[in-house]
Design a protein around this nucleic acid. Structure first.
Lengths: 148, 148
DNA sequence: GTAACTGCAAACGCTTTGCACTCCC
DNA sequence: GGGAGTGCAAAGCGTTTGCAGTTAC
């Protein structure tokens, strides 16, 4: 979860020459207050209560904006739709291959080994996406034979 | 690049109770003989010369099959279409954020640090996707101001 | 006041599906 | 021979776009 104050959000948008609209604030607050990896649909459904007229187009446009500015990253797709990750810090996504649930973890050893690795490669990463595919405990317990 | 003999491919398919068709062989050979990360469209165009009647549907179905069986991994999307990686071994994808080119690298230190990391996490990864987003040398040289 | 934003609907493009025909086993 | 696979066309669905009306500044 990324804690961000509304006032900071406003100056963030203004800084970029972008207008601060209620819709944008709502979308940002929704995205950055979650600690999961929502799809556009999930964001839309959650906002529809408070903003009944909000449209998918606006959400797509705002997420596009946040992605371009580097505040958001795509974590891959699940059931055909993109999932977003508000956490741009170095971390690992544990992706359950059965239920699709994504959990963030930051292994203690990760920061140091990652800096060694990237300096070995001689590149300056803008960002990274580290997904580990596994079977989560919940799904591991259930004795369903996967249909593969 | 994954070197795989046609005879191995055939027994691989048979093993899984799948029929060996010329189309499937062609698709497999196309995918596994490349060392880039082709889209469905690229595979289709390359095969159309030799198999003028091959259809996108068949390619989609075959790639789906290979993915289910674990011989292929999605590396994310570029321009709206999925890119596939025939390399299921532990490696890093260097993804240029400007031209979209993807390069595989295997840092010397990676295998050991990765096994430390996963054992720390106490999980058994089925696979992983390690993408590093950067600007490749070709794009870094060109003095275009990114429109972001 | 005006340029940017919203939201609707239509368009778009990648992917999946249904189905008749074909072919591997 | 029979069931699985192919390929065509159509449908599906997430996403983008055009545009008229609205709003932030």
């Amino acid at each position: 979860m990324i804690w961000i104050k509304t006032s900071d959000l406003i100056s963030l948008l203004r800084e970029k020459g972008k207008k601060v609209t209620p819709q944008r604030l709502a979308i940002c607050q929704e995205v950055f207050s979650r600690d999961d990896h929502p799809s556009v649909e999930q964001i839309y459904l959650n906002l529809k209560n408070k903003y009944p007229t909000i449209s998918l187009a606006t959400i797509y446009k705002t997420l596009q904006l946040l992605k371009e500015k580097g505040y958001l990253q795509e974590v891959g797709t699940s059931n055909g739709s993109v999932r977003y990750d508000p956490n741009r810090n170095l971390h690992v996504n544990l992706v359950c291959t059965k239920c699709g649930e994504i959990t963030d973890v930051i292994p203690k050893t990760l920061p140091q080994m990652w800096s060694v690795l990237t300096s070995d490669l001689g590149i300056e990463p803008q960002s990274q996406l580290l997904n580990i595919y596994y079977t989560c405990k919940k799904c591991g317990k259930i004795g369903i034979i996967p249909n593969v």
